[in-house]
Simulated assay, not measured.
Amino acid sequence: MNLNAIFLRSFRILLLPFSLLYGLAIVVRNFFYNKKIFQSASFNLPVICIGNLSLGGTGKSPMVEYLLELLHDKYATATLSRGYKRKTKGYALANENTNAIDIGDEPMQFHTKFPNVAVAVGEERIVAIPQLLHDKPGIQVIILDDAFQHRAIKAGLNILLTVYDDLYTDDFFFPTGDLRDQKTSAKRADIIVVTKCPLNLSASEKEEIIKQLNLLENQQIFFTAIQYQTPYHIISKNEKPVSLNDEVLLVHGIANPQPLKNYISEISAAYDEVSYSDHHIFSIDDLKDINKKFAKIQSSNKLIITTEKDAVRLLKFKEQLLEIPLYVLPVKPVFLFDSAEAFNNAVIDFVNSFKKDDTETAI
């Protein structure tokens, strides 16, 4: 552990009193919901919630995209997100003129990759869903992105994500830890997905994790790993595999870049990085800094790699990017232990369980 990590951990321990106050507020809030003092609204259509108990990257966006890929050809599908770090407020529905500033980077990513999906944002999801159904009355299923802790809406299917090497059972309330909800809230999940596992996760380690999570009888558990795809140019979309002869400048503004950095180090000759905070809004000066750092790389075999989430925030510099070898690295979750079919069936069965008239969209 380096000195910065030791300092950060020590500093966060000093914040324990704030964590206890925060945790108390969360426990009281959940108590009120559990006792129905605070009411949760249900909608008469399939609502799937993707979320986690902690701050940071657990792989929610790749899981949302996995569900969109699974559902969008079969059902009129919509996603609803908060739209973190967008410059707008309130409800908004993506259209052909929308950009990441309007709706946030992750919703823009969904909108770009799935143009036939209704992509909406709104801080108050209980208000945004009726507006979404008014704008798109044919919607048959809604995917709530990062909404597990938002109990004003009672989703029909709750999918909780937790990272393989940072399980919620090992965490503590923010700011000492990263928990934004209490551990017992995991009992509300119908499905728990352990994300970012090694591809060679053993059956014995799988069983140890299941034992640690202490699932209820009605809960299903799945294990996924990150699978990176072939990079494509941010503008031309031409693909370019990275080889062991290539030197890479990695540009990222994501919550947990370590798996990405590990992967780039494995597939390239060497890499340097330009890192930003999660959901960073890129400026023209940032692009100049990236170009300067890229120019310093001496190899003739060099390229810039960024994430899909970062790419949607860079696209506003379309003209400047035309001649830059900036490639986007797609990612998707792969289910381990041949469990993809079981997961898919659980989701499809849930959606099909709603037999209603298409005009019914009221709470």
Rank of each mutant, 00 (worst) to 15 (best):
I210Q: 05
S265F: 08
S283F: 07
P257I: 10
P231N: 06
N291W: 09
Q212D: 15
I226N: 07
V194P: 11
T230D: 05
E266W: 10
Q220Y: 02
D178E: 10
D190A: 11
T176M: 14
N218D: 14
D272G: 01
H279R: 02
D165M: 10
D272R: 01
Q258E: 15
G253R: 03
L249E: 01
I234V: 00
A203G: 12
A225Q: 15
I264T: 01
E208T: 14
K292L: 14
H233I: 03
N262S: 15
A270F: 05
K296V: 06
V242D: 12
D286P: 02
Q229V: 10
L179K: 04
F172D: 11
P175Y: 06
Q220C: 00
R180Q: 02
N214F: 09
A186Y: 05
I290G: 00
F172N: 13
G177R: 05
Q219Y: 08
S300V: 03
H252Q: 10
V251R: 03
L249D: 02
H233Y: 04
D165T: 11
E208M: 14
Y168M: 05
I281W: 06
T230S: 06
N238I: 05
K292N: 14
P257N: 04
K302C: 06
I254G: 07
H279K: 05
T169Y: 09
Y271F: 03
K292T: 12
Q298L: 08
K261W: 00
L167A: 04
P198A: 15
L167I: 01
V163W: 07
Y168C: 03
D289V: 09
K240Q: 13
S243N: 05
T184V: 05
D170R: 01
V163D: 05
